[in-house]
């Protein structure tokens, strides 16, 4: 694969399906896999995360983004189940903003490290500029 791929994890299937749709519109060339919900219910599932990673894996790299709570534990568990994890990174970033940046950067052909670094910057992003006089 030419570009770094994305794996999106959420407790809700709808959240990651919707997010994937949004990102496909922004950057259709980047491969995105989702792991949302658990058996149709709210939750996350390490096996589904593992499958999602495998479905978009290439040596170019895979960046994993997750939402809340136990999503990280299951992502780490999935990593332990995978045979090789050299080119896979879990990003410490908010899911929506982080994935948006990751898709854009990946689409520019950036390396895995560069994509991870860029999307982790989303934590510092100012979304509402407040005027100082209020």
């Amino acid at each position: 694969m030419k570009y770094v791929s994305l794996v999106l994890i959420s407790h809700s299937e709808e959240i990651v399906n919707g997010l994937k749709k949004l990102l496909n519109q922004v950057q259709p060339d980047v491969s995105i896999a989702v792991a949302g919900g658990n058996d149709g219910e709210i939750g996350t599932n390490a096996f589904r995360i593992k499958e999602a990673v495998e479905s978009v894996y290439s040596e170019k790299g895979v960046v994993i983004l997750f939402d809340i709570g136990s999503a990280l534990m299951n992502a780490e568990l999935a990593m332990e189940m995978l045979e090789k994890t050299d080119h896979i990174a879990i990003a410490d970033a908010p899911l929506v903003e982080g994935a948006y940046i990751a898709a854009v950067e990946a689409g520019l052909g950036k390396s895995l490290d560069e994509v991870v670094r860029a999307c982790e910057q989303a934590k510092q992003m100012v979304k509402v500029v407040r005027s100082e006089v209020e």
């Binding site: 658990n38 709210i42 939750g43 390490a46 709570g69």
Partner: peptide
Amino acid sequence: AKVGGASGP
């Protein structure tokens, strides 16, 4: 596989 919350992992 079956427990979606934190207790699963």
